[in-house]
């Protein structure tokens, strides 16, 4: 009962933030004007602003936030490690490397799906590495160290590729790939990324029962009929699909997958199967809020999303480490 209430509350929050996201922007539009343009297509220029500029941005914030929260919860459940998160362990930056390579080699221009597929490949490679290096028995230290190494390597790769680009704007965009932004995204990007994100999210949401069993330990889980090999495959594929597509269009936004599951875990009785949908909704709410905030704080400057999520997330991360230290001592 309490769980249903939580989901309903989170859904209402997401719906509210989605609406606010549609109503915030540099062109000061009236409320009725924007709504009639959005739903009935009245007012030529206003329709363009609402349907081609603000709607794709709000949809992407919803989806990207959702898959980041969800994949954070799934990774934490599978690795049984509270510090796992696609941004921190290098999955996002590897996806960025894949995306940047596709863009700068021109493959992305020659066939449409090359961009998300290449980002997906980058993400998949790093999840495989993380699971191999810091699998369920790896411990927090191994996970964080592997994550630092993978992030550093992928980040350096992104900077190298962009610095070698013949395009004078490319090098300045290292910031975008490291911090993420939804400025000036269009329905083209929605069409490109959302199907992959939905597929990834569907896979991750299927993990619930397996992750619940895994909380009892690997042997107990296997005796309950959970096939660990299959579970691992689904985690890898689901994370790669959703994070790869998200990064390909929005860049790397960190800490969403860390903060959201942690806030929500006590509210769902620490059951992974319940945490997964809640974390998806919470992630969507967090990213929608961050994307509204960047437009309110600096309307003309394209402040990066990752700046805000890190300002909230990094102190949170320090707090977590502090608490783990006390528990271990």
């Amino acid at each position: 009962m309490r769980y249903r209430l939580l989901l309903a509350g989170l859904s209402a929050l997401v719906a509210l933030l989605f609406a606010v996201s549609l109503l915030v922007g540099p062109a000061a539009l009236g409320l009725t004007e924007s709504l009639s343009a959005l739903f009935r297509g009245q007012g030529e220029a206003v329709v363009l602003v609402m349907r081609e500029i603000r709607l794709p941005r709000a949809i992407l914030a919803l989806m990207v936030g959702g898959v980041l929260g969800l994949s954070g919860a799934a990774m934490q459940g599978f690795l049984r490690n509270p510090l796992a998160e696609p941004g921190l362990v290098g999955v996002s930056s590897s996806a960025a490397l894949g995306a940047v390579i596709a863009l700068q080699t021109g493959i992305a221009a020659s066939f449409t799906l090359a961009l998300p597929l290449s980002a997906l490949a980058g993400a998949a490679l790093s999840v495989v590495l993380i699971v191999a290096l810091a699998g369920p028995r790896g411990g927090a230290l191994a996970l964080i160290l592997a994550g630092i190494a993978i992030s550093a390597l992928a980040g350096a790769g992104v900077a190298l590729v962009l610095n070698l680009s013949p395009n004078p704007f490319a090098a300045a965009e290292i910031v975008f790939w490291m911090m993420g932004s939804l400025a000036d995204r269009s329905m083209t990007h929605v069409a490109l990324a959302v199907p992959f994100m939905l597929a990834g999210a569907a896979l991750l949401l299927m993990l619930g029962r397996g992750l619940d069993a895994l909380t009892l330990g690997e042997d107990a889980a296997e005796s309950l009929g959970v096939r660990l090999g299959r579970l691992r495959m689904v985690v890898i594929l689901g994370t790669a699909l959703s994070v790869g597509a998200a990064v390909a269009v929005a860049g790397t936004v960190g800490f969403v997958g860390l903060v959201v599951p942690h806030i929500l875990r006590p509210l769902v009785g620490a059951r992974p199967s319940r945490l997964l949908p809640a974390a998806a909704l919470g992630g969507a709410a967090m990213l929608l809020a961050a994307d509204i905030a960047v437009r309110v704080i600096a309307p003309d400057r394209d402040l990066k999303l990752g700046v805000l999520t890190a300002l909230v997330g990094a102190p949170f991360f320090l707090h977590l480490i502090w608490r783990m230290r006390r528990l271990e001592a």
């Binding site: 013949p166 395009n167 490319a170 965009e173």
Partner: peptide
């Protein structure tokens, strides 16, 4: 310009 950029 040749190459790709998000700016363009």
């Amino acid at each position: 310009y040749p190459g790709a950029s998000r700016a363009e």
